[in-house]
Design a protein around this nucleic acid. Sequence first.
DNA 1: CTTGCTCTAAATCTTTAGATCTAGTACTTA
DNA 2: TAAGTACTAGATCTAAAGATTTAGAGCAAG
Lengths: 236, 236
Amino acid sequence: MRRADFKRKTRVIVVDDNYDHASGIRELINLEQDYEVIANAGNVDVAISLIKKYQPDIVLMDINMPETDGITAISEIEKLGLKTRIIALTGYDEADLIYRAMKIGAKGYILKTMASAQLIRALDEVSMGKIYLPSVLCSKFFEYFQAAEKNEKAYNAADDEENLLNYLTNREEEVLGLLTEGITYKGVAQQLFISETTVKTHVNNIFQKLQVNDRTQAVLYAINKGFSSRKKAKIA
Amino acid sequence: MRRADFKRKTRVIVVDDNYDHASGIRELINLEQDYEVIANAGNVDVAISLIKKYQPDIVLMDINMPETDGITAISEIEKLGLKTRIIALTGYDEADLIYRAMKIGAKGYILKTMASAQLIRALDEVSMGKIYLPSVLCSKFFEYFQAAEKNEKAYNAADDEENLLNYLTNREEEVLGLLTEGITYKGVAQQLFISETTVKTHVNNIFQKLQVNDRTQAVLYAINKGFSSRKKAKIA
DNA sequence: CTTGCTCTAAATCTTTAGATCTAGTACTTA
DNA sequence: TAAGTACTAGATCTAAAGATTTAGAGCAAG
């Protein structure tokens, strides 16, 4: 690493409520000449103030602590906007934990059960700006990620059959599109070069088809069924 | 693999517009006793009809084809809801391509420049139901993924300072909450046990604070700024 | 060539919505 | 105690929104 040229070690803070475990990690890391553990923290509040003060290069964050959960902690730290990179550390390889940690900005994820060499490798990779996620955990992540994306799609598309938006005519879609921008009848009429009465007719037909009573409900229905995103897709 | 017990090879379809390259892959795969390439497709339309007909175990999909783009193709295939697993294959390691491919359900991603052993390993992993993403590509993915998540957050939260929702009083938040459900003044009045006039007063104050002219715009503002999700979070 | 759908638009009416101003009560803070 | 803020609510308008009915023009399919 280039930093070693300046004899500046990569500074690490370890956050773990288990003192013995934290000490173990400290010993392990301090054996490496490129790294030094500059502080330990037994809970999230202490951790955050230490991180603010010392702005370490890397934080090793235990995820399963009793009081505050580590996920929230990572989120808090990321909000600080420092260059500090976070590696999550847990005993479990649950897909949703991995997903959430990586989603909010963790740069690596390792299991406590993994060999100590893995820890050092994670430090090496992450300190160089890379992501470190062992392939097993990577699989877990994608398991969750792809399921989440699938659900979101299903939610937005809502099975096409039950999506009342599909019964709208082209013109009605256009009108609804303008309604979802918060435009008045008069405004819609001007934009589409039709009379206000015609707009009212269309809007009434839309209400019938979407089974709602007013524009606000229509707009809400449209948004929930992914209307706006579909529109954007069409334009783009 | 268990399938080998029944002497049933894992069936692969290769989709690549470059015939020479497709042939090369075919040769390579057919050297393995656990796999057989049952078809080649030079374009997406042919590919989809072949996949429908033969329902292969794995599809090797070239992403950078001239006519239809491979990403859309993957999406189409996933929509079929088969057990077929897709491995993306490209010449480039662009973060957004990897992100998009994995997002829509690809089970693996490999570069054409990678050693042939990688291809076989990918087949092995994916056919066992795992994800195959070499660590370099994994890093690329997360680079894009975390940036995307960060942007979305920034868009939704809108920096608190500029989020006009923060200027609303508790009562006004309640009223706005009901407006976002498409309820009339009268309805809001009944639910909150106050007069309709009072509701109008609140709503007017909301309009002032959010700098909008009517309820539809207020609701849209609220939704875009993550109002509903905040409400849900409070309830839960 | 007739049936049906889409888009257009008028007339008429009732109901909400929204703007504005005033004002009382209650609670907090300087 | 006086000033400030939140919540309440009245009166009085005007402007939109929405319901309903009727109807003509254009176009596609049977």
